[in-house]
Amino acid sequence: MDYRFSDRVQTLKPSAIREIFKYAADPTVVSLSAGNPAPEAFPAKEISEISARILLEHPIDALQYGLTEGYVPLRQHVSAYMKEKHNVGRAFDDILITSGAQQVMDLFTKSLCNEGDVVLCEAPSFIGSLNTFRSYNARLRGVPMDADGMNMDALEQALKEEKNAKYIYTIPNFQNPSGITMSLEKRKQLYALAKQYNVLILEDNPYGDLRIKGDYIPTIKSMDEDGIVVYAGTFSKVISPGMRVGYAIAPKDLLQKMIVCKQGADVHTSMWSQIICDEFITKYDFEAHLEHLRELYRAKSALALRKMDECLVPNKITYNPFEGGLFMWCTLPDGVDMPAFSKQAVLRKVCVVPGNAFLTDESAPCQSFRINYSSPTDEQLVKGIEILGQLAKDVL
């Protein structure tokens, strides 16, 4: 049969990362391509205890339908936590529990964008969000990154030129894939520009709790006195990605449209997952758990950096400094074919993600690739970087 796909999906391509997972599934391949938390990061014992208690004491709460807006205690506790810890949330805001932060991008874009509307994105940026924006036939315009975040001159130029720009998408903390953290000064400039040009900001902060060095920087949403920032948070990187629990904190009028869209998508996020998240953050020492994660990633990143300095830097591969998150952004010397390098790495049994996968224009030239240091074992991390170092030596 000749399947006639909708105009919205005709040009969509599979996620490059998900395609790479097919190679990474080979047990002989070292995968430095995933974005998964470390296996040691999961509070499996606590989740098991909570699950047993839920099913014994109040099973129907977890097994029955729930509100689209989310499990009420979880909404209340997350709202209070974000207000107390990060000064996020004003009288005009409310909270929606979503099926992972990825759904925030989807519901937000569905609520706002018509075909041809423009989304201004960091270049590079997270492939999952870029594909979501593309799925609504939004036109993406990339804004280059400096060492301290989005280039503000380029952003303002884009805002002047793109009259139908709907919002600016940013990952200000330990950006995926570049690892860059936006400075406080640039966060203020970004907010001022969005207000001046009457566009919204979608602030995606999945890694904010995973700071391993440096000083905390306030969120852009904490500056929001005008109802122009939507904040996307998640429990994926701090409790479990498989449970699919995220949340949006946004102005109520905007959130109401996102709620209607969610009703047509999945009705509500898993009640079981929501209750587990609520009990974990309220009945266990959540702050101690976060510190455990930071210590874990501090140690793993230190090992990765030592091997990078030993194996890659002498072969002219550079990397961005980072203060947290899960990723390292590596750049090959000019003249080296990055896609060919990445393919050769696969043949040598190590997977990285080619950098062009993270661009608004995937056909644009790119010299970089992304490494994930959180999910491999220490032995795999060492082996994978050593293979990349030898490959670089051979190529150069």
Rank of each mutant, 00 (worst) to 15 (best):
F5P: 05
S6C: 12
D7R: 14
R8W: 07
V9A: 09
T11D: 07
T11H: 08
T28S: 14
L32G: 06
N36I: 03
A41Y: 02
F42P: 06
I47K: 02
I50N: 00
E57W: 03
P59E: 01
P59S: 08
A62D: 05
Y65R: 08
Y65Q: 06
G66K: 01
L67F: 07
E69Y: 05
P73K: 03
L74T: 06
Q76V: 09
H77F: 07
S79P: 00
M82W: 03
A91S: 10
D93N: 12
I97W: 00
S99M: 11
M105I: 10
M105L: 12
D106C: 11
L107N: 01
N114G: 15
N114A: 15
V118Y: 06
L120Q: 05
A123I: 06
A123S: 15
S125Q: 09
S129A: 15
F133I: 13
R134S: 11
S135V: 08
N137I: 07
R139P: 00
G142A: 13
D146Q: 14
D146F: 07
D148A: 15
M152N: 13
M152Y: 12
A158V: 07
E162V: 11
Y169K: 02
F174C: 13
E185T: 15
K186V: 10
Q189N: 13
L190Q: 08
L193E: 07
L193Q: 08
A194L: 05
A194P: 07
A194Q: 04
Y216R: 06
I217Q: 02
S222F: 02
E225P: 11
V229S: 01
A232K: 01
G233P: 03
G233R: 00
T234W: 01
F235M: 09
M243T: 12
R244K: 12
A250Q: 03
D253S: 14
L254I: 14
L254Y: 04
M258G: 09
I259Q: 01
V260P: 01
G264H: 10
M271P: 05
Q274P: 07
F280R: 00
Y284V: 06
F286N: 03
A288T: 13
A288R: 10
H289V: 12
A302G: 15
A304I: 08
P321M: 09
M328N: 02
L332M: 12
D334P: 06
D334W: 05
G335V: 06
M338T: 13
F341V: 10
P354Q: 02
T360Q: 00
A364I: 08
R370Q: 15
S374T: 12
S375V: 03
E379A: 12
L381F: 06
I387S: 03
I387Y: 04
L388H: 03
L388T: 09
